[in-house]
């Protein structure tokens, strides 16, 4: 597994540590969707701080992850999109649609706490 997934209380935290291949991204998607059931998690944080490129395939896979996790009954939040990556996504017209994004891990946990209280 290219991306370690940590379980922290009711949440799963996947921290991407280096550039990922398309196959790594798909593997991450499948692992998260399986583990959210195994650990009965209420939320998933995907930390993309270390990603220097978020192209159309990576963006689509992140959207798929959020959508599949939602179908499993949990929430996903993407954290750590770098300024250069945000710039490129806007220039290219790539969006994450309704997938929530926040600044960093701390904000990600706060976001999931707020979500699970409602």
């Amino acid at each position: 597994m290219a991306v370690p997934i940590l379980k922290q209380s009711h949440y799963l935290i996947a921290t991407i540590q280096a550039a990922l291949t398309d196959a790594d991204l798909v593997e991450l998607r499948d692992a998260l969707v399986a583990r959210v059931g195994k650990f009965r998690s209420r939320g998933v944080i995907v930390d993309v701080t270390a990603l220097d490129v978020l192209d159309s395939f990576a963006s689509r896979t992140l959207r798929d992850i959020a959508c599949m996790i939602r179908l499993r009954g949990a929430e996903t939040v993407i954290v750590g999109i770098q300024p250069e990556v945000a710039f490129t996504m806007v220039q290219m017209g790539i969006t994450l649609e309704d997938v929530p994004t926040v600044l960093d891990l701390e904000e990600g946990l706060a976001h999931l706490e707020r979500k699970s209280r409602h």
Binding site: D52, V53, L54, D55, S56, F57, P83, E84, V85, F87, T88, Q91, M92
Partner: peptide, 12 residues
């Protein structure tokens, strides 16, 4: 930022 644009274009 421009290097990221270029890397992303290559990726596509």
């Amino acid at each position: 930022s421009e290097a990221t644009l270029i890397a992303t274009a290559i990726s596509e």
